[in-house]
């Protein structure tokens, strides 16, 4: 189906409206929809690969890996990543760490996880000392990265835990 407005591109957005008391469905391409303030592509269907293509001008932001080599564990290369927007294995995060940071900051506005802690299978969630140590490590890291929002959150969590110790 072609876009009703430009009659050129494929219609991707189908929106029901009332015009002159008539209920109608308009079929628009992403671009024309955007012209109406409905940014469908940006919001709805931006796979990371598209996003990576958009920013590939700033190539230094893309994961290059250690000396440009693929991940030693899974063989995922920075080209693979650029093409698919997907990493190959958990170790990829360590391998591409330096360069991933810039990307994560662009996507999430932060690189520091401040959510649920995970201490590994078989550990009870109540190992407070391990938890505190890990939180303090992450706090140091957040301060180092000048991620003050994350740091504040981590400080709160630490105070909370320390409080429950007494």
């Amino acid at each position: 189906m072609l876009c009703e407005r430009c009659q050129e591109r494929t219609a991707e957005v189908h929106l029901t409206t009332i015009e002159n008391d008539e209920m109608a469905t308009v079929h628009l391409c992403a671009k024309c929809a955007e012209g109406q303030g409905i940014s469908f592509t940006a919001a709805a269907s931006a796979p990371l690969a598209d996003f990576l293509a958009q920013i590939s001008g700033g190539a230094e932001e893309l994961p290059q890996g250690v000396r440009g080599e693929p991940c030693p564990y899974c063989g995922n290369s920075s080209d693979d990543f650029r093409r698919t927007g997907r990493l190959g294995c958990p170790e990829c995060y360590a391998h591409f760490e330096g360069q991933l940071r810039g990307l994560l900051r662009r996507i999430h506005g932060s690189t520091q996880h401040v959510g649920r802690l995970y201490l590994g299978a078989g550990t009870g969630a109540e190992d407070r000392h391990t938890k505190l140590r890990s939180l303090r490590l992450r706090l140091d890291r957040a301060v180092e990265l000048e991620d003050f929002e994350a740091a504040a959150e981590l400080r709160d969590q630490i105070h909370l835990l320390e409080g429950s110790e007494r």
């Binding site: 990371l48 927007g85 997907r86 990493l87 958990p90 995060y93 360590a94 991933l100 990307l103 994560l104 996507i107 999430h108 690189t111 520091q112 996880h113 959510g115 649920r116 995970y118 590994g120 890990s134 490590l137 992450r138 890291r141």
Partner: peptide
Amino acid sequence: AFHHEFGFLTCCPTNVGT
């Protein structure tokens, strides 16, 4: 799979962290 800085690791970096 959990990383001290990045949190829970996911195939796509748009899901990483929580």
